[in-house]
């Protein structure tokens, strides 16, 4: 907490404190505390990694999508995720990070990504539920980040949230269509909802009382709302959508609380949450292994591109 607690002394420190105070954006060339820089790099990198790892669970269904229209929608969505990853790695690079180095941290397990992607996609209904619940939760988390204090991240988030919102609507529309289909399809939607509901609530992170980095991030205006507040907002928004869809959310304690004007809901299994974060989720090892394999199998291609570029530069310089 030292960075904000100590009275600003240098001009840079004073300017940074003033920028935060006035709710303006910090830009890459501005002076910033090292802690702020490290926090931003870590957060943006984790977000970028999540986009890239997040391509896998849904990407696995592209070749098997049951109509050509759904195939096109899914392929476009997974492509959008690659684009978000690229965009976010670029934002991290404005802070002095290097994409290759961040990728190494990911595949060596030294940097995290969203735990939600360690769960398997068992049926095509999962594609719809990921759009509805996972993208929905991501939007709840990320919309406030459009006002995050670091300029490049905030601007990236505006574009990303708009696309996530489109993905969410497409996922929900797939589920609506499936619910109008056969009993087997309706059962698939309910089953996928059952499996993804609790992991989606876990996407908001640990309860506020157990969230060590939150206070500093709030003080720096990197973060705008607490984990529990965002989680509550997500539940309140999702309940009527589940009703419209005709599925039951798998929580017997979920009910409207007229006094609070919000929904009460059951306790999250924090033991499972910690287990998945610590690498013990169903597919942690597979997700990283897949990414590592792609990186290793592409190494000779990247080396060739660098060698060709160096040769081309030499040829230009020698006029050959």
């Amino acid at each position: 907490m030292s960075d904000v607690a100590v009275a600003p002394e240098s001009a840079g420190e004073r300017a940074f404190a003033e920028t935060i105070e006035k709710d303006q954006r910090v830009e890459p060339r501005d002076w910033m505390p090292e802690g702020y820089r490290k926090t931003m790099i870590r957060q943006i990198a984790q977000h970028a990694h999540s986009e890239i790892i997040g391509m896998q669970p849904e990407g696995a269904w592209i070749t098997r999508a049951p109509t050509l229209r759904r195939k096109a929608i899914l392929l476009a969505k997974v492509q959008d995720e690659a684009g978000h990853g690229l965009y976010l790695y670029s934002a991290a690079e404005t802070l002095g990070a290097d994409r290759g180095d961040l990728t190494r941290r990911l595949i060596e397990g030294r940097q995290k990504y969203s735990s939600i992607f360690n769960y398997p996609t068992l049926t095509f209904a999962d594609v719809g539920v990921i759009g509805w619940l996972v993208d929905g939760a991501a939007i709840c988390n990320q919309v406030p980040l459009c006002r995050s204090s670091f300029g490049p991240y905030a601007r990236a988030m505006i574009r990303i949230c708009k696309e996530e919102s489109f993905h969410q609507r497409q996922g929900y529309e797939l589920l609506m269509t499936m619910m109008s289909g056969t009993p087997e399809q309706r059962a698939m939607v309910q089953d996928a909802t059952n499996r993804w509901w609790w992991p989606s609530l876990m996407m908001f992170g640990p309860p506020d009382a157990d969230s060590p980095n939150s206070a500093q991030s709030m003080a720096w205006k990197i973060k705008r709302h607490s984990n529990d507040e965002l989680r509550q907002r997500f539940v309140d928004m999702t309940v009527p959508q589940a009703e419209a869809l005709g599925v039951t959310l798998p929580d017997p304690e979920l009910r409207w609380n007229a006094e609070r004007g919000r929904h009460d809901f059951g306790e999250i299994d924090w033991v499972e949450f910690k287990k998945v974060i610590a690498g013990g989720g169903p597919l942690n090892a597979e997700r990283i292994a897949h990414r590592r394999r792609a990186d290793e199998e592409g190494a000779w291609v990247r080396e060739a591109a660098a060698a060709h570029a160096a040769k081309a530069t030499r040829r230009r310089e020698t006029g050959a």
């Binding site: 391509m55 392929l75 997974v78 492509q79 690659a82 199998e297």
Partner: peptide, 29 residues
């Protein structure tokens, strides 16, 4: 091309290959 998604050597190629796959899928439809 769809089979290459998540396996490309660089992110730029993920985007390009998905893009080409989408174009061809559109032509096929």
């Amino acid at each position: 091309l769809q089979q290459w998604v998540t396996r490309a050597p660089e992110l730029e190629d993920e985007l390009a290959l998905a893009n080409i796959g989408l174009d061809l899928l559109g032509q096929a439809r």
